[in-house]
Design a protein around this nucleic acid. Structure first.
Lengths: 206, 206
DNA sequence: CCGTAACCTTACCAATCAGTAAGTTTACTA
DNA sequence: TAGTAAACTTACTGATTGGTAAGGTTACGG
């Protein structure tokens, strides 16, 4: 069995096991056994447990970010449509690859610097993409004079965080399609942003 | 030194250490030493490492949820003002107790069922509170005929997730006050929701 | 058929901690 | 002042598990 194939097999299994057990509770022995090989092979190909996890993280992060970017790029020129397409792809990805999402989302907290960096980097990539679309959307609408990069960044953080959290809602509402979820989210955020740009303000007064 | 006092001291230290190192990397020995006692004392009072973590979790979750609820309750009757007050209190809490937030937010992923449940419970409490305010806001406005509990829940998830994520933005923009952040968020979400209720829809068409 | 390199295994080591047994001191009460 | 319970310590064990040393087997080019 050639190395490249084995590596992918190992990573396939590892994503499942890490998602199920969590990083620490996952034993390399178990991953090796489920992959149909012995432990030293894992170390030969992936160096260490951390290296293995990092490989999982990188592969799945790359897939997720690519899914978002390709959907957004294939959706024409209008920022709002690209954002819609990207978010749709995101929810579809999470629905289809739950283990990948669990590994990316929940299991990467308390680990080494290298791992934290990898996760942060992936999130930064998405965040940058989204913030760019927000910026474009603002300037396209010709209403953006009052809003700067900091504001676009704020909206991007809110939006990405909302999407994160809505994956839980999606799990609890299996009848709802990824597109439906995206539509609701866009309605909430985009309409609000547009109207705020038009000067419709909310202030804490009765 | 009486037990109750010692317990709180231990938990104080443990929150710091868990926040800094993460659950697994945190050694009970270190927590004991920083608390100025020996390890068996920790086990005598808190039963196990997991019990210790659970105690941290419960205390900090209770504090956070209380901060939200008390702020919301002290803000009169209007749902939007209560929501505003609650969110403000949340951001202020995170700004003031960063370690607590790190423990609640990042360190509770891959642990035992009991711990996962405790975290889920705290989040559920906040989510329920927020969803209730959303529902009230919708029905108060008299526009809510088309929207049900599922929609309020959706908005609550989006809002709570956005708030989660904006704690990162807050860290990167230390010049922004919790109130300012809350104001931006309310403008984004509340205006959007209000206008969507008024029939202003966004649809994926150029 | 020989060498060598890729693929793969068994069997072990070593270190880290969670958790505990046994005993000591302090402080309060009868 | 004897008794006892709470507060506290030192010094250990036991188990898990990341990681490795040493060696075996297959495949293939010369």
């Amino acid at each position: 069995m050639p190395r490249q194939v084995r590596e992918q097999q190992i990573i396939d299994v590892a994503v499942r096991v890490f998602a199920k057990r969590g990083y620490h509770a996952a034993a390399v022995d178990e991953i090796a056994e489920l992959a149909g090989i012995s432990k030293p092979m894992v170390y030969l190909y992936l160096d260490s447990k951390e290296g293995l996890f990092l490989a999982c993280l990188r592969r799945e992060a790359e897939r997720l970010v690519s899914a978002f970017q390709e959907a957004a790029r294939g959706a024409g020129a209008a920022p709002e449509l690209r954002l819609y397409a990207g978010l749709s792809a995101f929810f579809a990805f999470v629905a289809a690859h739950r283990d990948s999402w669990v590994v990316l989302h929940r299991q990467a907290s308390e680990l080494s610097e290298a791992i934290a960096d990898a996760v942060a980097e992936a999130r930064r990539a998405v965040m940058g993409e989204v913030a760019g679309l927000i910026r474009d959307g603002i300037s396209d609408s010709g209403r953006g004079s009052r809003l700067g990069d900091q504001d676009a960044d704020f909206v991007a953080h809110a939006l990405v965080g909302a999407a994160d959290s809505l994956t839980d809602w999606m799990e609890r509402n299996p009848d709802q399609s990824p597109e439906g979820i995206t539509l609701r989210l866009m309605n909430m955020v985009w309409v609000g942003m547009r109207d705020v740009l038009d000067g419709e303000a909310w202030l804490p007064q009765a």
